[in-house]
Write a protein that binds this DNA or RNA. Structure first.
Length: 269
DNA sequence: AGTGAGACCCGAACGC
DNA sequence: TGCGTTCGGGTCTCAC
């Protein structure tokens, strides 16, 4: 599931590859993915140069020389592949963007989108998002303040993009596991010590996931051994029934308002 | 304010 | 092989 670490992995890989390069062709197979009539979308993009690939929460931002921005959200199951006309995946690509002989394929964009925006429109779109958990200005003090404003269930808050952005279903469970705190705990019942631990685990888990290339099935390019490196390092997510790496008891799989929740009910409290 | 339900969307995986 | 069916899950909106 593309969350902060997966998008950050893509950002890094994309910046190295297409940063500074000009778009030579585009192909839109699914018009709903974009926000403009295809000819207008194409007209603005063709010949335009990518000045910077940036990330905000689970969004990827392709800044263009024209000062437009391509805003990507992969939602569920979206993923990217960087190859060529020969080197591509045998999967449907909703959009492709070419840089001479290199092609960026956008796959699995069912609910996901790739919107071409002005900087003003971009600010408006990103405005409702909560703070970035890894932003240096996001301190334990700030985190504690945020938690004081919330009263519901911990996991619900962690995945609330308006409250704190970038964390989704997978990492909320991983963070809670690392902190040895149940994701179903009520926020007001958390002790100062637990909040401190949660903050620390949030930093540690997200940084580790970024370092190992996130939780992602398909590779980003041929011979890519980075993307998806965190798949095997997940401790609870999608591991229902497997033994807990910390205590050996079986990981439980539950539901919380239509969301899957994975936790070790033995060593998480 | 928090919670839950429903809609969105459709390719891939699965079953026969 | 091929057709039909099922499923996933972030986000938004709306009702309670």
């Amino acid at each position: 599931m593309p969350e902060l670490p997966e998008m950050e992995t893509y950002r890094r890989l994309l910046q190295e590859r297409i940063g500074g390069r000009s778009i030579t062709a585009t192909l839109v197979q699914r018009e709903k993915t974009i926000n403009l009539p295809p000819n207008e979308w194409n007209r603005i993009l063709l010949g335009n140069r990518i000045t910077l690939v940036d990330r905000r929460a689970k969004h990827l931002l392709f800044h263009l020389e024209s000062s437009h921005v391509l805003l990507l959200h992969l939602m569920l199951g979206g993923f990217l592949y960087y190859g060529s006309t020969e080197d591509k995946l045998d999967r449907t690509a909703q959009v492709t963007i070419s840089f001479d002989d290199h092609i960026l394929y956008f796959h699995g964009l069912r609910l996901g989108y790739l919107h071409l925006l002005t900087t003003w429109q971009l600010d408006e779109r990103l405005d409702p998002l909560g703070p970035e958990p890894l932003d240096p200005s996001f301190t334990l003090t700030r985190f504690t303040e945020l938690l004081t404003e919330k009263r519901g269930i911990l996991k619900t808050a962690l995945v609330d993009q308006h409250w704190l952005s970038g964390i989704g279903n997978c990492y909320s469970d991983e963070i809670c596991f690392d902190a040895a705190i149940l994701p179903t705990r009520r926020i007001p019942e958390l002790t100062d010590e637990e909040i401190k631990q949660l903050f620390h685990s949030m930093q540690a888990v997200l940084k580790e996931a970024i370092q190992f290339g996130g939780y992602m099935e398909p590779p980003f390019y041929r011979d890519d051994d980075l993307t998806g490196g965190f798949n095997d390092r997940c401790r609870v997510y999608d591991r229902g029934g497997e033994p807990c790496v910390r205590c050996g008891k079986l990981i439980s799989k539950g539901k919380l308002s239509s969301r899957k929740v994975f936790a070790c009910t033995n060593c998480q409290h």
